[in-house]
Design a protein around this nucleic acid. Structure first.
Lengths: 340, 340
DNA sequence: TTGTAGGCGTTATCAA
DNA sequence: TTGATAACGCCTACAA
């Protein structure tokens, strides 16, 4: 065997100590910026570090200190969502910004399979990270339980799963859905429908609740259809069904931009114009929104801020703050464009 | 259960050994699937592991074995690019698939600032990973040199200018750009322009080179504009500028699909029809391409395969294969649709 | 202010 | 087939 993958031996504190003519303890103190080090010793150590090309071995340091100065961001998404949803990228950047400022390393872990899930759980248990941020985990997702079980500081972004006593940052889906529906009504629509989705998840259920609350007495259950997934196809099927039920519809709230895009397609091929005949609004302000024709009025999620807040809360938990373990809602904004 | 600051101490091999009534050595052999373990001992250890809730401490293992079974993917992008680049997600997924199958953990590191760069360099030196994949590195990027200097197995996605003797996987940007430009010219266009981008990177520079080579003597520097980012906005600005300079343009090569989408928008609002008045082609075959109106003719980039190949080459290097240290080009294809 | 030495949890080399 | 026992590189009381 040529070699088994082990890397060449790096210089250690021992080597630095020898080069500097000092003890390992003193070298360690210099490296960690601790007091009680003479200027002369400090200078000698720093020179020796450069001389021997010393880089701290983090594995050894972790083993000793039981901390890693790293935080994991776990992305648990089906492929298509990961490739398309700009929210994930923005959350990632927001998280990285905050962690970077605190000199923590962001480590992004992807779960696509059960095998990934197991390996990630092991990774987390292995002391590689001091905290975890989890994006859009579902209730039955084993990684959530695993994290809770090992008592690692953790924050969920998005839907809080069926676990209590865990921190999360999210948006107020009820309020946002109510707002944009009210605005849609405000354009003079009389027959307003909704294509709901993912009613088994908080986000989906809450968006329907908000829609209902905006309509009040005028809410008509016949004008609501629902589908399992926030997908383009759900928009196609949903809009077809709605037009069958009530051809006089003049307003549609789609539970996601992808759904809205599908609905738009059906409206166009049915000969209706948007927004003149029918006004339509979406949710997410994802890449779909700007690619639609006309551009979609939709709910903008503060994804970057979501990422920042999540990172801050993990750091708070790591430093032992109890009140970081609770829910936190961020405000959304309406991006009003041309589709309604 | 309130957070009392004291994380429960993880069970160690010592605890497992005690529970199983065996020695730590035997427990270790079971965990690592080594031979010379009696079935009885194996069963006892496995039961004990479950009983005490043992999870291996990877820091300790790394320290001893000098390997981590993890590979870093370094993404070096400014914010907007990260959010828009359609290839990054696919490369990530391809990489994760291959590494996961080999039981390696993919660790994604983001560099947005100099501070990030330094921290990542330290992280890599710290024994956290056995290999590195670097995407979209630029010439002056210090991380490339740092990696080369510490002798860590490394593969670049795309060819960073100015670094020799390093493994990379990429596509032939020059050839692909030349091909699609030639095909555009072949539709009878007389005044062909380019919206170039990211000229500080190999991909951007090479696409311009290919464009130029396709035009030969007919190349007109006035018909080339360039912008830092491969973004929709670059397409808007670029197309406006081109129309100002030369209203009689009848062909456009956009350096990315996002740029092409922006350019399409400007062409439409200027009253020109595509492809009748102006033919336009893009690059990437991203999600933009199919949702443009009309669908975009573009260069299909095998991003997922690129990710897979990079991961495989890193694994090869880690297991000591020297011939994994060279360049490798993957073929592109032209997806010819309706925009030209 | 500096040096010494005992672990952190594993793996690996020996004997038994 | 199993059980002791060194390391791995670092931090940190405790001594000096």
């Amino acid at each position: 065997m040529a070699h088994d993958g082990a890397r060449p031996r790096q210089a250690t504190i021992h080597d630095v100590a020898a080069a500097a003519g000092l003890s390992r303890g003193t070298v360690s103190r210099v490296i960690n910026g601790e007091p009680y080090v003479s200027p002369a010793a400090k200078a000698a150590v720093e020179a020796a570090i450069v001389e021997v090309g010393y880089v701290p071995n983090t594995a050894a340091r972790n083993l000793k200190t039981r901390r890693s100065n790293a935080v994991a961001l776990i992305v648990h998404e089906p492929h298509s969502l990961f490739l398309e949803d700009p929210n994930i990228g923005a959350i990632l950047l927001g998280t990285n910004t905050v962690l970077s400022a605190a000199d923590y390393q962001l480590v992004t872990l992807i779960i696509e399979s059960e095998r990934d899930s197991d390996r990630v759980a092991e990774y987390l248990g292995g002391g590689f990270v001091d905290g975890v941020i989890i994006i859009s985990a579902r209730a039955k997702d084993p990684i959530g339980r695993a994290v809770a079980g090992m008592g690692l500081p953790a924050v969920f972004v998005g839907h809080p799963p069926g676990i209590e006593d865990i921190a999360y940052v999210g948006i107020d889906n009820v309020g946002a859905a109510r707002s944009i529906t009210e605005r849609l009504i405000g354009t003079g629509r009389k027959r307003v429908a909704m294509i709901a989705s993912a009613l088994d998840r908080d986000s989906g259920r809450d968006r329907l609740t908000g829609f209902r609350s905006a309509l009040g007495d005028r809410f008509d259950p016949d004008l609501v259809v629902d589908f399992p997934f926030y997908s383009y196809d759900s928009g196609l099927d949903g809009m077809r069904e709605l037009l069958r039920r009530a051809p006089d519809i003049d307003g549609v709230f789609a539970a996601s931009d992808a759904i809205a895009a599908g609905a738009l397609e059906v409206l166009r091929s049915s000969g209706r114009t948007v927004p003149d005949d029918v006004g339509i609004v979406g949710f997410d302000d994802s890449a779909w929104a700007l690619r639609c024709q006309p551009p979609l009025s939709t709910v903008h999620q503060p994804a970057m801020t979501l990422g920042r807040a999540a990172a801050q809360r993990v750091l708070d938990q790591i430093s032992g703050s109890d009140d970081a373990r609770s829910g936190m809602m961020l405000d959304t904004e309406i991006a009003w464009r041309d589709s309604a």
